[in-house]
Amino acid sequence: MHDRSKQYIFLVFRLLIGAIFLWAGMEKILSPFDFSVSIYNYRLFPEPVIGLAAALMPWVEAIAGLCLLTGFNTKGASAITSLLLLVFVGLIIISAVQGLDIDCGCFGAIERKVGIQSILEDFLLFIISATVLLFEKKPIKIYSLFKKY
């Protein structure tokens, strides 16, 4: 495949992951307490960890999403999104094994129950994110698309 075509495929992947993370981060930024409830429901973490995660993670998600959308710091941003998605998959698997009937809380207000569907969805997003991390060489900056106009 031509290099330019590859770049556009990576751009689509990046925009997808970036948009999802920016949106999910903003949702959680607007209601950090609700996010802390989602983490609490996993019944895996002590109170200070839940407080810190609910306070900090949404901002990291949103900034990583913004970076992927704009084309800046894409390696670091895709590493973070890949890692987070891997953590989500792991948590959902643990909860599904325990038989917990809870909302996964991965993407803010969207209700996604812990189960095989959410595992597969997040794993697919992880593959897309990891593809950007490992194979995108020259990320297209979003403003460069408008330069010619």
Partner: peptide, 23 residues
């Protein structure tokens, strides 16, 4: 990866602490 990731995490941490210090 480490450098870029560090700046993103640092920026997120600062904003998160400032906005959600009560939580």
């Amino acid at each position: 990866i480490v450098k870029e990731g560090f700046w993103i995490v640092l920026a997120g941490t600062i904003l998160g602490v400032v906005v959600n210090h009560k939580l």
